[in-house]
Design a binder for these strands. Sequence first.
DNA 1: GTCATGTAGTTGATCGTTCAACTAGACAGT
DNA 2: ACTGTCTAGTTGAACGATCAACTACATGAC
Lengths: 157, 157
Amino acid sequence: METKTATPWLTPEQQRVWRSFLGGTTVLMDRLDRDLRATHGLSVPEYEILVRLSEAPGRSIRMAELAAAVAHSRSRVTHTIARLERENIVVRGQCSEDGRGVSAVLTDHGFSVLEAAAHTHVQGVHDYLIENADAADFVAMGRVMQNVVEALHGKNF
Amino acid sequence: METKTATPWLTPEQQRVWRSFLGGTTVLMDRLDRDLRATHGLSVPEYEILVRLSEAPGRSIRMAELAAAVAHSRSRVTHTIARLERENIVVRGQCSEDGRGVSAVLTDHGFSVLEAAAHTHVQGVHDYLIENADAADFVAMGRVMQNVVEALHGKNF
DNA sequence: GTCATGTAGTTGATCGTTCAACTAGACAGT
DNA sequence: ACTGTCTAGTTGAACGATCAACTACATGAC
C-alpha cells in the first residue's frame, strides 16, 4: 500500500526548458515541413517513411513494421501510403509467407524524389538545428530523446 | 558571385541524434496529448493557450499576440478559440483602443479546467521527459531549443 | 476440422490544421 | 477628406490525422 504521491511541480528552470522545447519543436518542424513541401511536395512524415523504405532490403517494408519504425498508427500509414501510391512514389506488394501482409515498396521515381528532397531536408536540419547547437549540447539532447523513445516504447496506442 | 555550397551531409552521430529527436518528440507529444484528452478533453496546443491566458493580466490576450506566443497561425488560433468558446472555457471580448482587436478571455470555468489539467500535464512532462533525462542534459536541450526559437523567430509564415 | 482469439490492414466519418480569400479598421501621404 | 497600404481577425474549403468498425488471414486449443 502506498501514499498517493503529490503532483511534482516543475521548477522555474524546468518550466523554461519545457517551453523552449515546445516552442522550438513547433517552429522547427513547421519550418522543415514548409521547406520540403514547397520544394518537393513532401511532408516531413512522408519523407521519414521514404527514408526507411530506401534503407530497407528491396526498398520494401511491411505496413506494420513501417508504422512501428516511424511511430505512427497503422491507419495513418495506410492513408499516407495510399497518397504516395497515387503519385507513383511507392507501390503496394502482397507479402509472401503471410496472407494478410502488405508491403510498401519504393519505386525508382520515389527514390529520385527522395534523393532530391534529402538535400533540402538535411540542409534545413543543419541550418535550423545543428548550427544553433553547441556540439556537446546537441548530443546531450540526443541522449535525452533516445531515453524518451525507449521509456515510452510500446506504451502508446 | 558565389560558388554554390555543397549540401553539408550529416555525420552518423548527427543522424542518430536527429532520429532520436524526431522519434522522441513524436512519441512524447502523442502521449501527453492522449493523457490530456482522456482526462480533461484538452489537446496540448489548447492547454498551452490556456496557460498563456491564465498568466496574462485580466486572463486576457489579443488574438494575434496569443498566436505569436504559442507559434500558431492566426487562423488556427481563431478556430481553436472558437472551439474553446463553445465549451465556455474562454470568451471573446472587443478590444478597446483598436477597433479591429479581439481578445480571448479565460473564464472561471476555464481556469478550473486548466488547474485540473495542469496536474495531468505536469506529471506527464515529469514522468516521460524529465525523469528520463540527466539534469545537465536536460538544460543542454533547453539551451539548444531556445537558440532554435530565437534563430527562427519571425521567419515562419 | 472448427472455434475462439489475435494480428494485419483497410475504410469512412470526424476532427483539427492549413490555405487563400475576404471584411474591416488603422495609418500615412497628399 | 481620399487613397493606398498595412494589420487584425474571420471564413469555408481542402487536406491530413484520429478513431471505431470492419474484413481477412493466422494461430492455438480442443
